[in-house]
């Protein structure tokens, strides 16, 4: 068996209101040090986690941690799957999401988008190929 496993982090909840999104991101950042094959999936209200122009300064008291997602590319976490239907059901398009990028070392460090739109049917295939799925 290979030493590298495929990890998928499934983010299903809105970024604020519960702590799941923030603590999920903490697992991803720590996990990045283990050199595994990491993917993230944003589905259901989880798509709001990477919406651009987040502003928590209107009284909720929650820490705005959205900029942390922009650092994922530097941690070699560059497969961010977003479920198309979840965006559509919430009146969002990919243009409403933050620009999350990475530098491709196999392509002269060209800056590329980490965001990969997938359909609900493709999510099924994505999950089936994983070794470890952590759902938040």
């Amino acid at each position: 068996m290979s030493d590298i496993k495929k990890f998928l982090y499934v983010n299903r909840r809105a970024p604020y209101g519960t702590i799941y999104a923030l603590e999920s991101l903490e697992v991803v950042l720590i996990g990045a040090a283990f050199d595994q094959d990491v993917s993230l999936l944003f589905t259901d209200d989880g798509v709001f986690q990477i919406k651009k122009d987040q502003d928590t300064n209107q009284g909720s008291g929650f820490k705005n941690f959205s900029s942390t997602y922009k650092a994922l590319g530097d941690y070699d976490v560059n497969k961010l799957y977003v479920e198309k239907e979840s965006l559509e059901e919430r009146g969002l398009t990919v243009d409403d999401l933050m620009e999350l990028t990475y530098e491709d070392e196999d392509d002269d460090w060209a800056e590329k988008s980490s965001i990969r739109l997938v359909s609900r049917a493709e999510v099924k295939a994505l999950m089936e190929e994983q070794d470890v799925i952590l759902s938040f």
């Binding site: 496993k5 283990f34 595994q36 799925i133």
Partner: peptide
């Protein structure tokens, strides 16, 4: 949290 990632790597199944 490294203990969680290690468990995912070492175990045949991680059950959540």
């Amino acid at each position: 949290l490294g203990q969680l990632i290690e468990a995912g790597i070492q175990a045949d199944r991680l059950v959540v």
